[in-house]
Design a protein around this nucleic acid. Structure first.
Lengths: 354, 354
DNA sequence: TTGAAAGCGCTACCAG
DNA sequence: CTGGTAGCGCTTTCAA
């Protein structure tokens, strides 16, 4: 910048103004500066700029696993929305490791980002108080934390559990199992929904029917297979399984099929996530859609709202209603009429905001 | 920092030293500083630091699509390697849009990152000369650009095409089609490999057997279905298809199955990417593994090497050899013995570096 | 319309 | 071991 100033015989201030489209600058001068800037392919140092303005136009996103399509899709939708307002997304992955997540967040805080969007895998709230201390605004997605009043966008996980379980009941399952997720809010609430649906139908909760994920595990597909093997050793054998997510369901289905069972006739399976490959599996998988795109978009909107507001806003919560997508893995002969190539969408659409 | 200095009656310089583990500081002073830092949960402003040191410890990664597991996996592996050396990854997605990619790269350059890793979707080299002008080191992955002598890590795409096509020939296919990829180096070279394998086997290249992706398209799965529908209208019908990647193959298989064909008996299908769900599909999909993890790791190593070298290194090229993974979609009755649950791995392992 | 001076938060350099 | 001074590349403020 100094160089350009010297070359052109103007001051750095003038250049700075031109670069920011400040009106206070003569047309001819502006042209000359622009020409030289283009010539040199000069780009102002944004880090230096944000040091003085106090705004980086950088938003951090922390997810537990970028390889999971659910989070990849969220990253994509957040990024799209932010970009329109000139914000830029930094994505980082905690690999489902609370300690790594802390490091990542520390790093992002130290870089003085304008805001953070976090799908946390931490069990406690302490870290978030520290974030608040730094006055960095943040939005939680997918997973909420009890005792923390923060911005949150996610799906109604209890409804997920109820929708899935009730569907299994509807198609005639009597012994419904649940391969549950981790000890985060979705894992907990989906299981609660499962239990509640059973109770409402007058069915008992059988302890052996609930398979708990061991911690610190990676391959959720293999995970699903192990869980299914446990379930199949039970007698009487369950005739329906609600899986915490689709990768788990995929592994579970594979195991059942490889052991000679028919899906859904011998055992029906439903997952959650409605991933794009669900309809191409050995048996197309019924699932609960959690509206990942919308989660991202809402999280981004809230972030932008906070950033553009002069006064601190009070925390906002957006809970999306899940949606049942029926495919072959739960379509029994005499069951519901609903059916189509891409799966029939049913019930409970819409969203509400508290 | 100033505040701490005032509170403790020491200078900011001392604090700075403590924070960077500089040896030149008294034990007692160090303790006092550390204590106060912890107390305030103080984090030095890394942006300010990098402004003066000229190093941000930030590496940018630009991929065409984060939702694609291939790139997600690369992102993950790069990040893991870099983290160990204290570098941090900024991921951004170009959505297969050359203009967007340019914007993203401009943005990253303006932030003065230490290096860039790019899977480009641009057809021309101009942008990269601009990057070189800025003296920002970069490594190309997956896609190379003719006429550009840059660091590159990728798979031998011609070998991919040959391996896949030869395999189809081996199992007895006579009319082998190719659903090709975009006009980037992998798309081009895989097709060349396909043609070469045909030629080597004395088979003719039939124009109608090569389906070209229309540009500016999104859903590669639907893409595959459309391509397959074209192929099935041919007479005589092809009896084998090599697809540019697995999502494409997934769509193609679905279409064929939905139209009453048997895979592999009526038509064999092979893809590329060896994605984690390949073995769970309606017909488990044979594929060519491109070693995504290794691509990421190598790219990260090269980056680190450049960053730690005082003198500019000359461009490095790493070409990984692809690997055939056989599953049901190409396993015909009387064919190769190779077979196992997770697919049999065959041939050409290893890697070489030029 | 232009630019000189001050300073964002930090580190490099060198004198004490 | 400690700290004053200068300066990274930019923007802000305000006087000319």
């Amino acid at each position: 910048m100094k160089d350009i100033a010297r070359d052109l015989g103007v001051s750095v201030v003038t250049i700075s103004k031109v670069l920011r489209n400040h009106p206070d600058v003569g047309d001819e001068t502006r042209e000359r500066v622009l020409a030289r800037v283009k010539e040199l392919d000069y780009r102002p140092n944004l880090a230096a700029r944000s040091l003085v303005t106090g705004r980086s136009y950088l938003i951090g996103l922390v997810v537990p696993d970028l390889l999971h399509p659910f989070f990849a899709e969220i990253a994509k939708s957040i990024s799209e929305v932010l970009r329109k307002s000139g914000y830029y997304l930094i994505v980082s992955s905690s690999e489902e490791d609370p300690d790594l997540e802390e490091q990542e967040i520390d790093q992002l805080l130290a870089r003085r980002l304008d805001a953070l969007v976090i799908a946390t895998c931490r069990p406690t709230v302490d870290l978030f108080f520290r974030i608040e201390n730094q006055k960095t605004p943040y939005v939680l997605i997918d997973r909420s934390l009890p005792g923390l009043s923060a911005n949150f966008v996610g799906v109604d996980d209890e409804a997920v559990g109820m929708l899935a379980t009730r569907h299994l009941i509807d198609i005639g399952c009597k012994r419904i199992a649940h391969i549950r997720g981790p000890e985060t809010s979705p894992g907990i609430h989906r299981m609660e929904g499962y239990k509640r649906a059973l109770a409402q139908a007058g069915l008992k909760v059988v302890d052996d029917h609930i398979i708990t994920e061991r911690k610190g595990d990676v391959g959720t597909k293999q995970r699903g297979a192990e869980a299914m093997s446990q379930l199949l050793s039970l007698k009487p054998r369950p005739d329906g399984v609600f899986c915490f997510n689709d990768p788990l369901a995929m592994g579970a289905m594979n195991y059942a099929l490889d052991h000679g069972l028919r899906i859904p006739d011998d055992i029906a399976v439903i997952g959650c996530g409605n991933l794009h490959y669900d309809d191409s599996l050995r048996v197309p998988l019924s699932s609960i859609d959690q509206h990942s795109r919308q989660i991202g978009e809402q999280a981004a909107s809230i972030t932008l709202r906070i950033l553009s507001s002069k006064t601190p806003l009070r925390p906002e919560t957006v809970v999306l209603q899940p949606e049942l997508v029926v495919r072959r893995s739960t379509q029994r002969r005499a069951a519901k009429p609903a059916s189509s190539k891409s799966g029939a969408r049913a019930t409970l659409s819409g969203e509400y905001s508290i």
